[in-house]
Design a protein around this nucleic acid. Sequence first.
DNA 1: TTTACTAATTGAAACGGTTCAAATTTAATC
DNA 2: GATTAAATTTGAACCGTTTCAATTAGTAAA
Lengths: 347, 347
Amino acid sequence: MKKITINDVAKTAGVSKGTVSAVINSRSTVNAKTREHILRVMKNLNYQPLGQARNLRGQKIGKSIGLIMRELDNPFYAAVAVEIKKYANSRGYILFIASSESDHQNEENIAQLFAANNVKGVIIAPVINGTVEIEHLFHLKMLNYPFVMLEEVQGILANVVSINNVKATSDAVKFLIDNGHTHILHFSGPKFASHTVERIKGFRKAFSESHLAFHDDLVVCCGSHFHDGFEKGVAYFKNFDRKKFPIAIVCYNDVVALGLMSALHQLNIKVPEHVSIIGNDDIEFARHWSPALSTISTPFEKLGRKAAEILINNIESDRALPIENIILDSKIVTRETTRKVQGSRET
Amino acid sequence: MKKITINDVAKTAGVSKGTVSAVINSRSTVNAKTREHILRVMKNLNYQPLGQARNLRGQKIGKSIGLIMRELDNPFYAAVAVEIKKYANSRGYILFIASSESDHQNEENIAQLFAANNVKGVIIAPVINGTVEIEHLFHLKMLNYPFVMLEEVQGILANVVSINNVKATSDAVKFLIDNGHTHILHFSGPKFASHTVERIKGFRKAFSESHLAFHDDLVVCCGSHFHDGFEKGVAYFKNFDRKKFPIAIVCYNDVVALGLMSALHQLNIKVPEHVSIIGNDDIEFARHWSPALSTISTPFEKLGRKAAEILINNIESDRALPIENIILDSKIVTRETTRKVQGSRET
DNA sequence: TTTACTAATTGAAACGGTTCAAATTTAATC
DNA sequence: GATTAAATTTGAACCGTTTCAATTAGTAAA
């Protein structure tokens, strides 16, 4: 069925399309009786004005930017989203959020849709599934469409605002070493996520820069969800030789740490007496949990604000702005899940 | 400064705008050298093709729907959003999320922006701040713009999919009464939220339908965040006469319940020995907390799915569909924060 | 019944692109 | 150098609205 246009309405109502347009836009110049009539015809024909055409002439509608997250329920990017929104609003922009579900094709479709629908620019948490697909990013560049990425992507020169995962994890390990720990594990994140890769790299880096020897068993493949931490925790500690305590674990993120703690609780292993734990992110629940979680605090506010700022500056600039690459440092906050270990190395 | 158009590019590049258009759309018919040249001119002029005009002719780009939440970090609507997205994707739609920050004007602006930008329809968690403003909803109706609301709004006849808050809270109270409780409180939600009002109504209803007498002190004004539950919990129980235990509390939502539990823990009051607690929502952390939270489980999946289904059916229908008003029931799930109380009423 | 306004309606020109048949160039073949 | 086919480029029509000067209808005063 062909789409109903303003012409169809005008024709069946027996008026000009200028009048119909006036009704659509609630202009007061149209006679009450005519208005009613046109409204009725609109309803009968189930006519829906095409927004795109409406704004083609005088573009005075609101400004907006987009955010492409990888998953809707990722607490990390949820926290960033809140900050992006705050800053965007402060500069008069509305934020639209979409999720790529970590799928390249989705990421591309969404970016297209944003660009095609008057969204002035976009912040992307890029999908990095082993193979990196960046054609669509090139396409955005060609269209001069402003965008900022929340993680670096090899092969494309674009604005990036991200956190220093290597340093964060490395600092955490060093902190544990300074506190006397000699047996340190890493419960790592989902495969292919660049955060996972970088955090493992930071973990190894700390070893190579200290007296401790690294071996692959120290990295336990885990994931990013509560149940990942719980399940891997149970699996790892079910038949664990208690003589090897105390140990320390740097977790991929806070919810994994919380899941792990839940597993340990169930196995009657004490935190931090037997196991010290450090999370990553510093989500709200981290400080409310009992015991309160020591963690690596991500500068969400700065991250979101900076990304949005660069994006909007680019949008509002007449000329092309220089490309920025900003990497922010995290900070360790110690609460109740870490402790100093005495000189003795076993038990 | 005037906006650069395809004409400007064509003119300065010395070609026709058809050729420029071909470059923009990566058509292979254009000569490599010409392409390079045009690309260079585009870059120099900082030309950004206007998406709206691009799709005016052949509208073959993707389909999308919008969701207007009240706050980005509201766990209730976050859970609904995930479900809406799932269903929308299954029907080939991308979901865009925006937040009104509980502000009428924002809600209106966002709805306008969606309608003006080729988003086919919208699901709204309506703002209800005492005064109800619904002009913009009428405007959407006039434009025949498809929308579904997640809470009923007085004065407008539109599609609604919501949950039965009155019944849910009432059921919770009755459950507690059946388990021997005689001293039951409600930690209620943020002022003006319709959920708050309905849940208080349900709380009172249960009293009026039982032998227990209601009085206003039983409803403690609280809020919707962890710290609300914590603070009101501390305030209420700081100097509480322990002779009055056991008591039971129905909380506005799970995070308030969790905050309250945290306060009780700090005051050395035992859950459920001294205080039984029931939350509302059944967020993921509710079952992971220790003790695991008894709560009223919201049918998020059904809620989101149904709202999206109605919306998309409306979008894809040629004629106007009958208005739907669906109210879903929640279900109590008992875990570790509630217990049966013996016949004795005090201590 | 004119006259003089005011209120309501019309219609053609944008808006900034896409499309595609026709025209023009370029390359290949004889 | 002429002929043909293939590769490029052009330009006018069109997409569905808004805009606004010009026109027409309606109304009150003279």
